[in-house]
Design a protein around this nucleic acid. Sequence first.
DNA 1: TGCTTGTTCGCAACTCGTGCAGATTGGGCG
DNA 2: CGCCCAATCTGCACGAGTTGCGAACAAGCA
Lengths: 162, 162
Amino acid sequence: MRSPTDLTAAFRAHGLKLTPQRQLLFRMLYDNATHPSADALFMAASAEMPGISRRTVYQTLNDLVAMGELRQIAIGTGSARFDPNVDDHHHVVCTACGEMRDVYVDDVDLAGAAGLDGFDVTSTDIVFRGRCTRCRRRGRPSPSTSALASISPSATTRKDQS
Amino acid sequence: MRSPTDLTAAFRAHGLKLTPQRQLLFRMLYDNATHPSADALFMAASAEMPGISRRTVYQTLNDLVAMGELRQIAIGTGSARFDPNVDDHHHVVCTACGEMRDVYVDDVDLAGAAGLDGFDVTSTDIVFRGRCTRCRRRGRPSPSTSALASISPSATTRKDQS
DNA sequence: TGCTTGTTCGCAACTCGTGCAGATTGGGCG
DNA sequence: CGCCCAATCTGCACGAGTTGCGAACAAGCA
């Protein structure tokens, strides 16, 4: 996304107002490579501006996404995460800690894949999943689905499966 | 996933019981290429077995996923969808109607992409997004993000953005 | 400074799932 | 065939994430 200064101008150019809440979020997002969730941003914003509403954070994020200044990424069914990098790129996610990094892939001919008949593909998202160096070193388990063993009711009670 | 008959045997072999609810779900999932959500399955199941609990549907789906007989797919932040096809494959999703189809991609060297340093990638998910033939013909809009135009408060009120 | 219109707030409501506990039932056994 | 007990089912409450709504508030322009 563009710099806080540029965004300020862009917002005003569209008849949108420049509030301190928005400016704070512009700053928190600019050059932020952590792919924060809305809640993470709310927490961070609250530290600098106690009293800011969670609602305002969601609102501003949605506005930025609608303006094309921010990308919303859906990893799994949990909370959405936001990426100020709107270039054409993809992601790796650590299944243990949730850390996420940008990945550049040359996928020019992917869309020639089998089964796309009739679809006019407008975007392609690739998500690599695995464990980051830190989690691997610490031996943090990937939350698997190691199947059968864990499903036997005689081994563990239902609630342990979660 | 395996046929209802095979699943029946597999469940019993693990000390799991064979209830009519489970058998119904086995049948609804087997050879089902629609990638249904838990709720869609609940609706369909309710038609054949009024009174079946939503909870039971979720439970059974989770069990099948844990057994590796079913794949859970997360497209966006909405509801999870389920795929009885557990082969190595990817998906196309229609951004207008949500229709989803399996896609086979040769992604052998994708993991050699830039930026994966340190991660040991265990899985790769590719999602193509676009509009299916039907939605294109009917002119159904893709829910874009066509940016600026739709965000101007003078053009539409805030609540219309949703 | 005053006005108009966009924003912020905060709470209620909604969606997708899961935890819990009591009522049921599958299925091995006598 | 009938018993018995663990595995299931059901229904409801609860939790996370996010949006709807309306009253109070504040940018930005005249």
